[in-house]
Measured scan of single mutants.
Amino acid sequence: NQASVVANQLIPINTALTLVMMRSEVVTPVGIPAEDIPRLVGMQVNRAVPLGTTLMPDMVKGYA
Rank of each mutant, 00 (worst) to 15 (best):
residue 1 N to M: 04
residue 1 N to C: 03
residue 1 N to G: 10
residue 1 N to I: 14
residue 1 N to Y: 05
residue 1 N to L: 11
residue 1 N to R: 03
residue 2 Q to M: 13
residue 2 Q to T: 15
residue 2 Q to C: 02
residue 2 Q to E: 07
residue 2 Q to K: 10
residue 3 A to G: 12
residue 3 A to S: 09
residue 3 A to C: 02
residue 3 A to W: 12
residue 3 A to Q: 09
residue 3 A to I: 14
residue 3 A to H: 11
residue 3 A to E: 06
residue 3 A to T: 14
residue 4 S to Q: 04
residue 4 S to M: 04
residue 4 S to V: 06
residue 4 S to T: 08
residue 4 S to W: 04
residue 4 S to L: 01
residue 5 V to R: 01
residue 5 V to D: 00
residue 5 V to W: 01
residue 5 V to C: 02
residue 6 V to K: 09
residue 6 V to N: 02
residue 6 V to L: 07
residue 6 V to D: 00
residue 6 V to G: 02
residue 7 A to P: 02
residue 7 A to W: 01
residue 7 A to H: 00
residue 7 A to S: 05
residue 7 A to V: 09
residue 7 A to R: 00
residue 7 A to T: 04
residue 7 A to L: 13
residue 7 A to D: 00
residue 7 A to M: 06
residue 7 A to C: 02
residue 8 N to M: 09
residue 8 N to V: 15
residue 9 Q to E: 12
residue 9 Q to W: 07
residue 9 Q to N: 11
residue 9 Q to M: 14
residue 9 Q to Y: 09
residue 9 Q to G: 09
residue 9 Q to L: 15
residue 9 Q to P: 01
residue 9 Q to I: 14
residue 9 Q to D: 11
residue 10 L to E: 11
residue 10 L to D: 10
residue 10 L to G: 14
residue 10 L to R: 12
residue 10 L to C: 02
residue 11 I to M: 15
residue 11 I to W: 01
residue 11 I to E: 00
residue 11 I to K: 00
residue 11 I to P: 00
residue 12 P to V: 13
residue 12 P to Y: 15
residue 12 P to A: 08
residue 12 P to D: 13
residue 12 P to N: 06
residue 12 P to W: 11
residue 12 P to R: 04
residue 13 I to C: 02
residue 13 I to N: 08
residue 13 I to P: 05
residue 13 I to W: 08
residue 13 I to R: 06
residue 13 I to Q: 09
residue 14 N to M: 04
residue 14 N to T: 07
residue 14 N to R: 06
residue 14 N to W: 10
residue 14 N to G: 12
residue 14 N to D: 11
residue 14 N to P: 03
residue 14 N to Y: 12
residue 14 N to L: 08
residue 15 T to W: 15
residue 15 T to Q: 15
residue 15 T to K: 05
residue 16 A to R: 10
residue 16 A to V: 07
residue 16 A to N: 04
residue 17 L to E: 00
residue 17 L to F: 15
residue 17 L to V: 10
residue 17 L to N: 00
residue 17 L to H: 00
residue 17 L to Y: 00
residue 18 T to Y: 03
residue 18 T to L: 06
residue 18 T to D: 05
residue 18 T to Q: 07
residue 18 T to V: 11
residue 18 T to M: 04
residue 18 T to W: 04
residue 18 T to A: 03
residue 18 T to C: 03
residue 19 L to M: 05
residue 19 L to N: 06
residue 19 L to E: 05
residue 19 L to C: 03
residue 19 L to A: 06
residue 19 L to D: 03
residue 19 L to I: 09
residue 19 L to P: 14
residue 19 L to H: 12
residue 20 V to G: 13
residue 20 V to W: 14
residue 20 V to A: 12
residue 20 V to L: 14
residue 20 V to C: 03
residue 20 V to S: 15
residue 20 V to R: 09
residue 20 V to N: 06
residue 20 V to D: 10
residue 21 M to N: 11
residue 21 M to Y: 11
residue 21 M to H: 04
residue 21 M to Q: 11
residue 21 M to G: 04
residue 22 M to T: 04
residue 22 M to V: 15
residue 22 M to Y: 02
residue 22 M to R: 00
residue 22 M to Q: 03
residue 23 R to A: 12
residue 23 R to Y: 13
residue 23 R to W: 05
residue 23 R to D: 04
residue 23 R to N: 09
residue 23 R to G: 10
residue 24 S to L: 13
residue 24 S to D: 07
residue 24 S to W: 09
residue 24 S to C: 02
residue 24 S to Q: 11
residue 25 E to S: 14
residue 25 E to M: 09
residue 25 E to P: 02
residue 25 E to F: 09
residue 25 E to D: 13
residue 25 E to V: 13
residue 26 V to F: 02
residue 26 V to I: 06
residue 26 V to S: 11
residue 26 V to E: 07
residue 26 V to W: 15
residue 26 V to Q: 13
residue 27 V to M: 14
residue 28 T to S: 09
residue 28 T to G: 13
residue 28 T to F: 05
residue 28 T to M: 08
residue 28 T to C: 02
residue 28 T to N: 14
residue 28 T to D: 08
residue 28 T to A: 08
residue 28 T to K: 06
residue 28 T to H: 15
residue 29 P to W: 07
residue 29 P to Q: 09
residue 29 P to G: 14
residue 30 V to H: 15
residue 30 V to F: 10
residue 30 V to Q: 11
residue 31 G to L: 01
residue 31 G to S: 05
residue 31 G to A: 07
residue 31 G to Y: 03
residue 31 G to Q: 03
residue 31 G to T: 02
residue 31 G to W: 03
residue 32 I to Y: 03
residue 32 I to A: 03
residue 32 I to W: 03
residue 33 P to M: 12
residue 33 P to S: 12
residue 33 P to D: 06
residue 33 P to L: 06
residue 33 P to C: 02
residue 33 P to H: 11
residue 33 P to Y: 08
residue 34 A to M: 12
residue 34 A to Q: 07
residue 34 A to H: 06
residue 34 A to F: 12
residue 35 E to Y: 10
residue 35 E to M: 05
residue 35 E to A: 13
residue 35 E to Q: 08
residue 35 E to I: 15
residue 36 D to K: 12
residue 36 D to L: 13
residue 36 D to I: 10
residue 36 D to Y: 06
residue 36 D to R: 11
residue 36 D to W: 10
residue 36 D to M: 09
residue 36 D to F: 04
residue 36 D to G: 11
residue 37 I to V: 05
residue 37 I to E: 05
residue 37 I to S: 14
residue 38 P to G: 05
residue 38 P to C: 02
residue 38 P to Y: 15
residue 38 P to Q: 13
residue 38 P to E: 07
residue 38 P to K: 10
residue 39 R to V: 05
residue 39 R to F: 05
residue 39 R to S: 12
residue 39 R to T: 08
residue 39 R to A: 09
residue 39 R to Y: 12
residue 39 R to C: 02
residue 39 R to E: 03
residue 40 L to A: 03
residue 40 L to I: 15
residue 40 L to K: 01
residue 40 L to Y: 04
residue 40 L to V: 11
residue 40 L to F: 04
residue 40 L to D: 00
residue 41 V to Q: 15
residue 41 V to S: 06
residue 41 V to F: 07
residue 41 V to T: 06
residue 41 V to G: 09
residue 41 V to K: 06
residue 42 G to H: 04
residue 42 G to R: 06
residue 42 G to M: 14
residue 42 G to L: 06
residue 42 G to E: 05
residue 42 G to Y: 04
residue 42 G to V: 02
residue 42 G to T: 07
residue 43 M to V: 05
residue 43 M to N: 13
residue 43 M to R: 09
residue 43 M to W: 07
residue 43 M to T: 15
residue 44 Q to C: 02
residue 44 Q to S: 04
residue 44 Q to M: 15
residue 44 Q to F: 09
residue 44 Q to T: 10
residue 45 V to C: 02
residue 45 V to T: 14
residue 45 V to D: 01
residue 45 V to W: 00
residue 45 V to S: 12
residue 45 V to E: 01
residue 46 N to E: 14
residue 46 N to W: 05
residue 46 N to M: 12
residue 46 N to R: 13
residue 46 N to H: 11
residue 46 N to V: 04
residue 46 N to S: 15
residue 46 N to A: 02
residue 46 N to Y: 11
residue 46 N to T: 12
residue 47 R to D: 14
residue 47 R to H: 06
residue 47 R to T: 12
residue 47 R to L: 05
residue 47 R to Q: 15
residue 47 R to F: 10
residue 47 R to C: 02
residue 48 A to L: 13
residue 48 A to N: 14
residue 48 A to M: 05
residue 48 A to F: 05
residue 48 A to V: 09
residue 48 A to K: 09
residue 48 A to Q: 04
residue 48 A to W: 09
residue 48 A to I: 12
residue 48 A to G: 14
residue 48 A to E: 15
residue 48 A to S: 08
residue 49 V to N: 01
residue 49 V to R: 04
residue 49 V to W: 02
residue 49 V to S: 03
residue 49 V to K: 01
residue 49 V to L: 04
residue 49 V to D: 01
residue 50 P to W: 15
residue 50 P to D: 12
residue 50 P to K: 10
residue 50 P to Y: 15
residue 50 P to S: 06
residue 51 L to W: 12
residue 51 L to R: 09
residue 51 L to A: 07
residue 52 G to Y: 08
residue 52 G to A: 15
residue 52 G to L: 06
residue 52 G to I: 01
residue 52 G to F: 14
residue 52 G to V: 01
residue 52 G to D: 06
residue 53 T to H: 11
residue 53 T to R: 13
residue 53 T to C: 02
residue 53 T to M: 08
residue 53 T to D: 08
residue 53 T to S: 07
residue 53 T to V: 10
residue 53 T to I: 13
residue 53 T to K: 14
residue 54 T to Q: 07
residue 54 T to H: 08
residue 54 T to G: 06
residue 54 T to R: 13
residue 54 T to N: 03
residue 54 T to C: 01
residue 54 T to E: 02
residue 55 L to M: 08
residue 55 L to G: 00
residue 55 L to P: 00
residue 55 L to K: 00
residue 56 M to C: 02
residue 56 M to Q: 13
residue 56 M to H: 14
residue 56 M to I: 12
residue 56 M to Y: 04
residue 56 M to R: 15
residue 57 P to N: 05
residue 57 P to A: 13
residue 57 P to D: 04
residue 57 P to R: 10
residue 58 D to C: 02
residue 58 D to F: 15
residue 58 D to A: 11
residue 58 D to P: 05
residue 58 D to L: 07
residue 58 D to M: 07
residue 58 D to Y: 07
residue 59 M to G: 07
residue 59 M to W: 09
residue 59 M to C: 02
residue 59 M to P: 00
residue 59 M to A: 11
residue 59 M to R: 04
residue 59 M to H: 10
residue 60 V to L: 06
residue 60 V to G: 00
residue 60 V to T: 03
residue 60 V to A: 03
residue 60 V to D: 00
residue 60 V to R: 00
residue 60 V to P: 01
residue 60 V to N: 00
residue 60 V to I: 12
residue 61 K to L: 07
residue 61 K to H: 13
residue 61 K to F: 10
residue 61 K to S: 05
residue 61 K to R: 12
residue 61 K to P: 12
residue 62 G to E: 15
residue 62 G to V: 08
residue 62 G to L: 13
residue 62 G to T: 12
residue 62 G to W: 04
residue 62 G to H: 04
residue 62 G to R: 05
residue 62 G to Y: 14
residue 63 Y to K: 01
residue 63 Y to D: 07
residue 63 Y to F: 15
residue 63 Y to N: 14
residue 63 Y to I: 15
residue 64 A to M: 14
residue 64 A to I: 12
residue 64 A to E: 08
residue 64 A to H: 10
residue 64 A to V: 15
residue 64 A to L: 09
